[in-house]
């Protein structure tokens, strides 16, 4: 297998306030991805994956949290655990899948893409969950 490189920066896109305008959020995600690309020498794969999940985040949110998302009352820290988990898993999986498809850039490596997506996602999700429990917002 070699090396697994979890992408903790996804945490930023996961916890970013849900009620920001979509356009602004996509721009921020693009800049985040692009800055990672410059350091990693990976062309534009992180930027593409970030913009993609920023674009479909409302759909995932509606899928995971149901109708309450539409009233803009959802905060990640006070949602039911199952819904939060499904939201995080979906975000990370979709991001990593697109990331590795673009990285390999050929469909002759489908098996390798899926394997890398699977293992990287597991570790990213674990790290995201740990960070979320460690840095809980203070209740007043």
């Amino acid at each position: 297998m070699g090396f697994i490189n979890p992408y903790l920066y996804l945490l930023f896109l996961i916890v970013y306030p849900f009620n920001t305008p979509q356009g602004l959020f996509m721009l921020i995600a693009f800049l985040l991805g692009l800055s990672i690309d410059t350091f990693e020498d990976s062309g534009g794969i992180h930027a593409a994956a970030c913009v993609f999940i920023a674009y479909i985040r409302p759909i995932i949110l509606r899928f995971s949290f149901g109708i309450s998302y539409d009233y803009q009352t959802v905060k990640l820290s006070n949602t039911p655990y199952g819904a939060r988990l499904s939201y995080i898993i979906l975000m990370v999986l979709l991001h990593n899948l697109l990331l590795f498809i673009l990285e390999m850039f050929s469909f002759s490596h489908v098996y390798l893409i899926l394997k890398k997506t699977f293992f990287t996602s597991i570790f990213t999700i674990l790290l995201v969950l740990i960070s979320l429990t460690l840095f809980k917002p203070k209740r007043r």
Binding site: M26, L27, F30, G33, L34, D37, G43, G44, I45, A47, A48, V51, F52, Y55, L102, F105
Partner: peptide, 9 residues
């Protein structure tokens, strides 16, 4: 944005 990042890729 997606097109731009694909172009860079």
């Amino acid at each position: 944005l997606f097109g731009l990042s694909l172009f860079l890729t």
